[in-house]
Simulated assay, not measured.
Amino acid sequence: MTPVELSRTVLHAVRRAVDDGELSVTVPERVVVAPPGPGGCGDYATNVALQLARPAGQPPLRVAEILRPRLAGATGVRDVVVTGPGFLNISLEGEGRGAADAALVAEIRAAGRSYGHGDALAGQVVELRVPYDVRAEVVADALGRIIASQGGRVAIDHREPVNVRPVPAPEDPAPLGPDAARWALLHPAAHDRPRVTADHLVQREANPLFRVRYAHARTRALLRNAARLGFAPEPGPLDQSEGQGAGHVLCDTLADHPRILGAAATHRAPDRLARHLVTLADATFPLLPAVLPIGEEKPSAAHRARLALAEAAGTVLAGGLSLLGIDAPDHL
């Protein structure tokens, strides 16, 4: 069960409690599941009981106890334990977290660059009225793709009153080139003044755009090098190795990608996607040294699983950049 599937399972438990008359709340659109924090247990935890306590007019622990048996009886869930003020800690059947990570990687490989696309805005036409300004035009163009990824359609015009007015760039970004110029305009939040400087062109760690594109290029290089060594990516549980902790963190970041895309679309905020890609790139780098065999080591199932995870990360990075209108080169 992937984190996205588990989130849907938690929502289904909430709906059942509402239908049974034990909770009187509006069922949220999404709930967050994440690795348990200090004092937690199991494979994943959710704070949905704390989220619903105030609108339900009940203590969080009571809400958690209402949800626990409905969640514990769901397919793929082995056990649910309530800890702290009302956190639901979920243990999955089978190989637990390892199986969930493998399922997530398989899902991304099947979806390709469309991973995270959904139908939250299906049938909706979103009108974007923008001023005659280069940054506003670039933001609207990116929003067209991001909103389309959630099933919606964008109509762009320049009529008043405008409803998309990011702070203009202090100077013409064109000298940076198309990719760096778009990043300079899209990465800051709409209320922040963008920096139009040559820093966006420098290939070093301090440049977020470079980190994102370099992480993608590194995953593609690993695939080429693995092919030369005679093995290919294959989703599977990560073993007890230096790559495991980094792999789990990376899987958590990948699992959050659909939520980020949905938020970027509904809030008209391409900067949310840009910042998420930086977070994803930074989560990718620690895994990479453990992907290929070292010395006389032979390729194993663990190497194939890590390679599949690296491949998935590169795919999501490329897909996110494409939604922003930025190229993701295989070589840097």
Rank of each mutant, 00 (worst) to 15 (best):
R259S: 10
L223T: 04
T219H: 06
A246H: 09
A274L: 02
L250F: 01
L273P: 13
H276I: 01
H216T: 12
A198D: 14
L261F: 05
E234F: 01
L186Y: 03
E234L: 07
G245N: 08
P194E: 14
R259T: 05
R204P: 14
D199L: 01
T197K: 01
T279M: 11
H216P: 03
R268V: 01
V212E: 07
R228H: 12
A283I: 02
E205F: 12
R259D: 09
P289F: 08
R218S: 10
E242I: 06
L186E: 06
P235R: 03
G262C: 07
D252Q: 14
A274N: 07
Y214C: 13
A189D: 11
R193M: 14
A198V: 08
H216M: 08
P286F: 05
V202F: 08
L292K: 05
A180T: 01
G262V: 03
A221E: 08
N225L: 13
A215F: 02
L209P: 03
A232M: 05
R204A: 13
G245Y: 07
L273Q: 01
P235Q: 07
L261R: 11
F210T: 00
G243M: 07
A255R: 09
A281K: 01
A226E: 00
R220C: 09
I294V: 10
G177C: 09
A221H: 13
G243Q: 07
E234K: 09
N225H: 15
A181D: 06
L288S: 07
P270A: 00
P258K: 03
T253H: 14
D199W: 02
R213S: 14
T266C: 11
L288D: 13
P188I: 07
G236N: 07
L176K: 04
Q203I: 02
A227L: 11
A181Q: 06
L186P: 01
V212H: 03
P258F: 00
H257S: 03
F210C: 02
R259K: 04
T197N: 05
I294S: 08
E242Y: 04
G177N: 13
D282H: 02
G295I: 07
T253I: 09
G295V: 06
R213V: 10
R204M: 11
T219A: 06
P258I: 01
H248R: 15
G177F: 02
R195E: 15
H191C: 14
L176A: 05
V278I: 04
R213K: 12
R182V: 02
P289H: 09
G247K: 06
A184G: 04
A263Y: 08
H257E: 01
L238Y: 06
A181M: 04
L229E: 15
A217R: 08
R275D: 08
R224N: 05
C251F: 13
A232V: 04
T253G: 11
H267R: 15
A246V: 05
G245H: 15
A221R: 09
A226I: 00
I260H: 00
P289G: 13
I260E: 05
T266F: 13
R193V: 11
E205N: 12
R182H: 03
R182F: 00
P289Q: 10
R195S: 14
L287V: 13
L222W: 01
G230M: 11
E242A: 12
P289E: 10
P270T: 00
P286I: 01
